[in-house]
Design a protein around this nucleic acid. Structure first.
Ligand SMILES: [Mn+2]
Ligand SMILES: [Mn+2]
Ligand SMILES: [Zn+2]
Ligand SMILES: [Zn+2]
Lengths: 168, 168
DNA sequence: TGTCTTATTGAGACATAGACTCAACACAAA
DNA sequence: TTTGTGTTGAGTCTATGTCTCAATAAGACA
């Protein structure tokens, strides 16, 4: 190991699977086939997803013996959040997951028309959060911030001239 | 009507029930007994509550013919949010409601130990929100901001010296 | 490499919040 | 009053997630 890296750099350099194995071992848990399949799949692409979609994708990825069951998907998602690999959001009452490990801090704009999520980062937000918390002697562990509204694209759609059929 | 009040002042002076009647009429809906009972009850005290609690309270308030059914409670809560009388929060995946009409804007600190909500207001928060939205040409209709952590009281509880039984 | 302990798994039942269906009912306009 | 239609409550249904438990498979150790 070169001494030009700090311990933190090394930790970030771990793959999600390696990082998860570290977590599992620290908890006396086992590195199993279903957990490996699931983590590989989840970290094969960066996007927001829900449990149901993941269950579908995994079940059509491998039928029979190598498939990952519904309970295992739910159990693993919880573990991955605990391990700090995934972040769980609540969008309009639904649970949505996304990469946390190795992905920059951010919050979301949620378009209530097309249901798309748009990411942004604000240093000031955390400052306000911490200032308010300090005032109330509240120890912060995190936050959920979602801005609701209508995205550019959907605004343009709405502005289109109405067709005859719409005017009846 | 004295001319020292603006139209807005007059609107705010409407009782929640009056405001709701206005909304119902504007939508061609009817002012019914169940809706009246529910609104009266909800606005009899200011607190955060969920659908289930409301269903319980209403059912033990009046049994038999004057009781409000579960579907009607859910339907009315949705209407009251639409009418701008109530605000719906998502706390740890659960739907929580609170007064919006006539109550000052605020956001929440959520203690993950005792599940209590603490209110605060920040002008700057809205500014950041609007600045970010403007950058992405996003039309804001609202936001959800919840700061998670541990309240003062629960911090003190945790700091108590451990009892013998805890050290075994 | 085989043995053994124990965490994990998948099938399927269960739980919970909330939405839907529909016939009886009650507003409110005429 | 009468009448048209929005509303209601009982019951059913759906979505999302959890629990139970017998069979299985990690992985520690010999
Ligand atoms: Mn994101
Ligand atoms: Mn509040
Ligand atoms: Zn959109
Ligand atoms: Zn607390």
């Amino acid at each position: 190991m070169s001494d030009q890296f700090t311990l933190e750099d090394v930790n970030v350099a771990l793959s999600p699977m390696e990082r998860f194995e570290e977590y599992l071992q620290s908890k006396g848990k086992r590195v199993t086939q279903p957990r490996r399949i699931l983590v590989d799949h989840v970290f094969s692409k960066h996007e927001h997803f829900d449990a149901d979609t993941l269950i579908d994708e995994l079940s059509k990825m491998a039928a029979g013996p190598n498939r990952v069951s519904r309970p295992t998907v739910y159990r693993s998602l919880t573990e991955l959040v605990e391990a700090g690999l995934l972040r769980k959001l609540d969008i309009a009452g639904r649970a949505v997951y996304e990469h946390d490990y190795g992905y920059p801090d951010h919050d979301h704009l949620y378009c209530t028309q097309c249901q798309q999520l748009f990411e942004f980062h604000s240093e000031e937000l955390a400052k306000i959060r911490d200032a308010v918390a300090k005032e109330q002697h509240f120890r912060v562990t995190g936050h959920k911030f979602i801005v609701n509204g209508v995205c550019v694209e959907c605004q343009h759609k709405a502005r289109r001239p109405k067709r005859k059929v719409d005017l009846i």
